[in-house]
Amino acid sequence: MLNNIQPQAVLFDLDGTLVDSVPDLSHALDAAFTELGFSAPGEDRVRGWVGNGALKLVERALAFSLTDKKIEPQRLNQVHQKFLFHYSLSNGKASRLYEGVSEALEILQRQKIPMAIVTNKPIEFVPGLLSGLGISGYFKVLVGGECTHKRKPSPQPLFYACRLLGVEPSQCLMVGDSKQDVSAARAAGMAVAAVSYGYNHGEAIELSEPDFVLAELQSFMGSIVSQ
């Protein structure tokens, strides 16, 4: 575990940590639901459902919309495919970087600290989103929801990113916004910082007891590289 030393690599979650992607996710989910005869959930509800990948997002939305709460696999798959189609059209259009993100990534890059994205988001949407936001050049490795057999909170995606980076997990820092990120980092034997502004299903991230709770990324990254 890191102990007052500069990490050899930093792994970042994407949605809710670097990027506020809910406007695009909500647009796609509303479009899919409306097309299939459901009421559009709306952005406020979607904010509370993001965090475990696209399929889980759709499942939570269906559970809210169906009066009997019975989600048949065929229906789930149908809505999921519609959502993916609409998200392919909206991805990146209204998403925005959180304050201080670009500056934080620049600090790490100047120190030649390799960075990776480790997200539960489908990998097909990751490169385009990063490119559209102007931050794709910072990351040596991209790990999406389908890149390993299990997703966060499993440590598998973190271990995979470390192998690709050639860095031991104990010498890495995971930065996320949810209890899934904290749990994955703990299971990987990795230090973990969590932002307080992300998507954690309405639960204060402090309850998950990360090593660091951050109001923004820039100051924290500046502090760890100056040690």
Rank of each mutant, 00 (worst) to 15 (best):
Q156E: 15
E203S: 15
G166Y: 07
S88D: 14
G137P: 03
S95Q: 10
Y98N: 05
R186H: 09
L84M: 06
L11H: 15
D211V: 03
I5V: 03
L36C: 12
L18Q: 12
L11I: 03
G42H: 02
L55A: 08
A191I: 07
F83M: 04
V79M: 12
K70I: 15
K152H: 04
V182P: 01
E59V: 03
A184R: 08
R186F: 06
V195D: 03
A28R: 03
T67H: 07
V10Q: 05
K179V: 10
S223A: 14
D24S: 05
D24M: 03
G92T: 07
D181F: 03
S208D: 09
V10Y: 06
C147P: 00
N3L: 12
G16A: 07
S208G: 06
L29K: 13
C147S: 13
E124L: 13
S226M: 11
S90F: 12
G100A: 09
Q111C: 13
A191R: 13
G132N: 14
S178Q: 05
V46P: 01
A63Q: 08
G16T: 12
S26E: 00
L217G: 03
L165D: 13
E103T: 11
S183Y: 01
S90L: 02
F12R: 07
S219E: 14
I71C: 10
Q227G: 10
D13G: 14
M115R: 01
V143A: 09
Q78H: 10
R96L: 12
A184C: 07
F12E: 07
L165G: 02
L158T: 00
D20T: 06
T34K: 03
G48L: 09
T67L: 15
A161R: 03
P210Q: 00
F83A: 00
R45T: 11
P153Q: 09
V58Q: 14
L84I: 14
I5H: 08
V126D: 04
E106D: 11
V175Y: 01
Y98S: 05
P153D: 08
I135T: 04
Y199T: 10
T67R: 13
L29F: 04
E99G: 11
D20H: 15
V192F: 05
L130S: 01
D24T: 05
V79L: 10
G202C: 06
V19F: 08
L11Q: 10
T67M: 08
G37V: 00
F33R: 05
G53H: 06
D211I: 08
A187Q: 10
P210S: 04
